[in-house]
Structure formats: structure tokens, C-alpha cells
Write a protein that binds this DNA or RNA. Structure first.
Lengths: 130, 130
DNA sequence: CGTTACATTTACGTCAACGTCAAGCACTCT
DNA sequence: AGAGTGCTTGACGTTGACGTAAATGTAACG
């Protein structure tokens, strides 16, 4: 292992985020890199948190939700209360995502109908032109 | 038929939108109600446009996209160029929606995995407590 | 010492689609 | 005339997740 500490550039490479994003997350108290003078050094812990942040974002959690969950983990270690809270939040999110999926399905089906209609019209134009 | 013209309130009732929304759409040149002094009177044409606006929104088109399409229809009457443009835009949107649905599916599957994991942990805690 | 290549901070800007006042006019009822 | 209601305009606020600009620092290279 090299140093176990990573600069902001290395982090950006590794996680495909911009420096602005990492500083932003720090300002929102999602990350706590070591401040070596004016520079940042990201620890293993920061990387673990960032992984969870990015995963959470994929699931559609807000940064504020994520922050609260991470903080809970920090306080409780790995106790039941926070696990249950995480679990509940995740179930809510899942429900929301499935609702969204259903709506998207309807919209897609409708749009396909409209497309069929459009093709019909185009065909009609084509035959008129011929 | 009463008057073929509707007040802002009637429009709100009929389309389940707020007055603010209608004024906003007018400011964005999506609607062109008659200005009777200081008040608005929405014509059949406005209603047709609003229907298309709301439909477009359901499909995820931006208001700007919608405005451009509506303007095209106004200019071209009902010619092939605009029909094709609409058709192409709709196909793009459909592709985007299907991509989005695929990503959502992955996220849902992942989240379900995490949930299963969470249940496992909770069960472990429960048995420890017993 | 100068240049290059990063790093930092602060603060304001962005995007979408409206919401939320505040303040005033227009009309009706009494 | 006063009260009440509805409609108007205009400007600023909201939300989330950063982007962008400007001014400055600092570290290593040659």
C-alpha cells in the first residue's frame, strides 16, 4: 500500500467526480478529509463514505438523507436503531422508485401510441406525394 | 355552447392547474389568451395547446421543447417537415425514457439486494436480543 | 527567479417550473 | 360607500447539486 491517503486529484480519478464535488461534499459535512495545511487528504474512511454517497445517489436519496444516515452510522457504530432506520428509508425509496417506474411505463406506452399515429400520418404524406 | 371562451378559473378547474401556471405558460409564449382589458380569456386554440403542453410534460419534454413544437405547428400548418420533426423528437424521448427505465430497474434490483442484506442483519440482531 | 501546474477560498450563477408574497384594480352585493 | 371576492402584475424565493469566476497560494521544476 502506498499511503492510504489520497489527494483530491486521485480521488477524482478514482471515483469520477470533480474537485468541486468533493469540496462541496466536505462543506455539507459528508466527508472529512485531513487538512494538511490548506490541502485535503482523503482517508480510507472518506473513501468508504464516498462510496456510500454515490450509491445512495444512484438510489435517488438526497444528499441530506445520506448525510443523516452516515452520521447515524458514526454515532451508533452498527446498532439496530440505525440499521432499522436505513432499512425503512430504503423501503420508502424503493416504493417511490417502483411508482416512478410504473408511471414511466404508462408514459412510454402512450408515447408509443402517438408514434404509431405519427407513422400513419407520415405514410399518408408519402403516398400523397407519390 | 356557452361562449367557447373560458376564464382562468374555469381553465384551472378543467385542466387541474393553478392560475400561476397558466400565467407562467403565457409568459413563456405557450399560450395566447385574449386580453379583455386586464383579464384573460382562453380560446379553443389555447385549450388545444394546453392539452398538448400537459401531454408533452407527461412524456418528459421540457416546456421549451414543447414551445418549439407548437410554434412549428403554427407556422407549417400541418406539413411533413414538422410532423417528421415531432416524430424524431418523440423517438429521441422514447429512447431516453427507455434508458431511464432500464437504469431505474437496475437501481431497484440493487436496492432490493441491499434490503435483503438489511433484513438479514436485523434478523441477526433480533436473535442476539432473544 | 520565473514558469507551470496545481491548489485554495468566497461568492455568485445555473436550471426548471413554478410558489409566494405584496399591492392594487374590477366587480358585485348590500 | 364599504366589504368581499377574484383577478392582475412584478419581483423575489424555492429546490438540489453542483459550475464558474476571480483572486490568491504554494510547490516543484529547471
Amino acid at each position: 500500500m502506498t499511503t492510504d491517503l489520497m489527494t483530491i486529484r486521485e480521488m477524482c480519478e478514482a471515483y469520477d467526480v470533480t474537485p468541486r464535488t468533493l469540496r462541496f461534499y466536505e462543506s455539507k459535512e459528508l466527508l472529512f478529509p485531513i487538512r494538511e495545511g490548506t490541502r485535503r487528504l482523503f482517508t480510507k474512511r472518506d473513501r468508504a463514505r464516498l462510496t456510500l454517497i454515490l450509491r445512495g445517489k444512484r438510489f435517488g436519496f438526497s444528499l441530506e438523507d445520506i448525510r443523516q444516515l452516515l452520521d447515524m452510522y458514526d454515532r451508533d457504530g452498527s446498532q439496530e436503531t440505525q440499521l432499522r432506520r436505513t432499512y425503512d428509508l430504503a423501503r420508502e425509496r424503493l416504493a417511490a422508485m417502483e411508482t416512478q417506474r410504473a408511471e414511466l411505463d404508462v408514459a412510454i406506452a402512450d408515447l408509443k401510441d402517438q408514434l404509431a399515429w405519427g407513422e400513419e400520418m407520415l405514410a399518408r404524406f408519402a403516398s400523397n406525394a407519390a
